[in-house]
Amino acid sequence: MPTNGTLGQNLNAPSIEVSNAQFAYGSRPLFDGLNLVLEAGRWTCVLGPSGVGKSSLLRMIAGLLSGGNDTAVRCGDGSATAGRVAYMAQRDFLLPWLNVVGNATLGARLRGEAVDLDRANALLQAAGVGEAANAMPDELSGGMRQRVALVRTLMEDRPIVLMDEPFSALDAITRLRLQDLAVRLLAKRTVLLVTHDPLEALRLGDRIFVMNGSPAGLGSPLEPAGRPPREAGAPDVLSGQARLLRELAEGGK
């Protein structure tokens, strides 16, 4: 199996600093004056209930949503985030008229660049969908489709990866497998994972923030022991779940 060294080419993953993030949905402020640091080359998880503004925060960092006047998103190495961010959503959004390889290499196709087929095939192999390279999306299971979406994200070889509940539509076992796969393939990148699943955050996160309240704020981070992906039954994961659920519940009052 190819190592990450051959698949990830230019990985000088920077840290990201979000300061004074501000966003209102209509007249209702979702968050205001929110600060968040994503440490370089590590997984940061933001855990929160639906509608709290997690996705908006993530889209703001991705540059898909503009914040308030004082809002700033900076990379730790001083350069801009533009062109260095990959984005992955809850649904795979594969194009139904392209086969697996076509979808995996969609970025290059849309930009009119040469397609690196060797790299695509190596990544598909690493993601466990190498056999399905010529299949159409509607011939695949939900888990396989999301693997292809993960490969599409990795093909971009961006040092920063933002993921918006990418595994929440999958069944429990498939979800665990894809979490392991993501940790392996996204090693050394700066990752932000937004989720509403405490177990997922605890398995994957180097640092876990709970996002709560209205307007929403971030608590102090939880930093579980051990390297991701952690075992679902590890002591820190189990005790962490109790704490995270309590924090989530407190914010809901």
Partner: peptide, 26 residues
């Protein structure tokens, strides 16, 4: 057309015109 489609394709570096021509219309 789901707005997330647009998000994903924009983050893949596609221009709005490309998204319209190659994704939205098909």
């Amino acid at each position: 057309l789901e707005p997330e489609y647009r998000d994903i394709l924009l983050s893949l570096g596609a221009s709005r015109l490309t998204i319209f021509r190659k994704i939205a219309l098909p």
